[in-house]
Amino acid sequence: MLEAKLDAASQLKKIVEAIRDMLGECNIECNETGLALQSLDKSHIVLVSLLLGSDGFSEYRCDRGVTLGLNINSLATVLRCANNDDILTLRSEDRANELILTFEDSKADRISEFNLRLMDIDQEYLAIPETEYAATVVMSAAVLQRTLRDLSALSEAVTIEIDKEGIRFSAEGDLGKGSTHFKPCVDMENAENSINITLSEPVSLSFNLQYFSNITKASSLSSTVTLQMTAGMPAQIEYKLPSGHVRYYFAPKIED
């Protein structure tokens, strides 16, 4: 039996909006620690890992594991019926075939209830290896999104090089090439504009910019993003949530 309450529906609405374009049918695993979703995007190039900790809910109860098999776009559609500041409750009985969502306005004189049909989705779960990343960069989520968007005008791929001088994003295409380099810096006024680099050795990887733009849709969830890279492995891109995270494991393009 799952019963989880959020004081503002916007907390869940914006997370689902950020990942809905990448995903289709997926299982949301609910247990006493919270809600977890792990799913490959349609291209199998990105693995999305979402965790919403139970302490992020104003009320949370899940005494036995519940799996919510649903299409993320259907969930997004139902959530569109909630106002951002509605109180949102998710409820599902054990082995139920529906998820009940209720939206109450704060004055509690309007309450909507939606029943989302659940499905049995046999999903392959991938083992995410513990990885020692050669480089970790913490930077503004908006700056990363803007940098990649600018370079997507030049090419469908971006090369990211991280060394002790900083982090360079570069792209080359038919009309020419371009690059943006950021030095490590600390911005005392607003810390989110700082560029913090932890490096054990330089690393350079290339990625598809179309998929990267899907990933950076999560920039609305967190002011900073953590980018972790190591040679020959998928990058880990993490947007922290008040009590959880949205993590993307992004497969690089490998020189053959």
Binding site: L40, H44, I45, A127, I128, M233, Y249, A251, E255
Partner: peptide, 14 residues
Amino acid sequence: FAMQKSIESFFGQK
């Protein structure tokens, strides 16, 4: 010429 790899080629199945 850089080849796009899939995630499965890096992460095994559980």
